[in-house]
Amino acid sequence: RPMNAFMVWARIHRPALAKANPAANNAEISVQLGLEWNKLSEEQKKPYYDEAQKIKE
């Protein structure tokens, strides 16, 4: 299954978030990633939607 825009973004940002929160488990990191993603504007998300579309094609 191809990655969606959030997954493209999260793949880039997960390592830094995990390093900054070494005690957090994957579920907690995923929740935090979701919160951070939701704070982004549509303009900030656009490159990730574009990349996800390329992956689908």
Rank of each mutant, 00 (worst) to 15 (best):
W37N: 00
N21G: 02
E42S: 10
K39G: 05
N4S: 15
N4A: 08
P15S: 09
A20N: 08
I12P: 00
K19A: 13
P22I: 03
A18G: 03
R1A: 12
M3K: 07
F6Q: 02
A10T: 03
V8S: 03
H13E: 04
Q53R: 14
S30Q: 12
Q53H: 08
P15A: 13
Q32W: 10
E36W: 12
L17P: 01
K39F: 04
A16V: 13
F6Y: 08
N4T: 15
N4V: 09
I12L: 09
Y49P: 00
Y48M: 01
K54S: 07
A24F: 14
M3Q: 07
E43S: 09
E51I: 15
E36L: 15
A52R: 02
A23L: 13
I12C: 09
H13K: 06
R14H: 06
A52P: 02
A27Y: 15
A52G: 03
K39N: 07
S41P: 05
P22W: 03
K54R: 14
N4Q: 07
S30P: 01
P47L: 05
E28L: 06
E42K: 13
A10S: 09
S41A: 03
R1S: 11
V31K: 13
V31M: 12
A20C: 07
S41V: 02
E51D: 04
L33R: 00
I29H: 02
E43M: 10
L17N: 01
Q32R: 14
N21P: 01
Y49C: 04
L40M: 11
S30C: 15
A16Q: 12
A27D: 12
A23F: 14
K39T: 04
D50P: 02
Y48P: 00
I55S: 06
S30E: 15
A18Q: 14
E42V: 10
G34T: 15
A27R: 12
A27N: 10
A27E: 11
Q53V: 10
F6C: 06
E28G: 03
K56N: 15
R14N: 02
N38F: 07
Q44I: 04
I55W: 07
K39Y: 04
E36D: 06
H13N: 08
K45R: 10
K54W: 08
W37K: 00
M3W: 11
L40I: 03
A5R: 00
P2W: 14
L17T: 02
R11F: 11
N4F: 08
Q53Y: 07
K45D: 00
E42H: 10
I55N: 09
R14D: 01
A16E: 11
N25W: 03
S30D: 15
L35A: 07
N25R: 06
L40G: 00
E36A: 10
R1K: 13
Q32T: 06
P15K: 11
E43N: 07
K19Q: 09
P2R: 11
L35M: 10
R1M: 13
K46M: 07
N25I: 04
N38M: 14
Q32F: 10
W9F: 15
V31R: 15
Y49W: 06
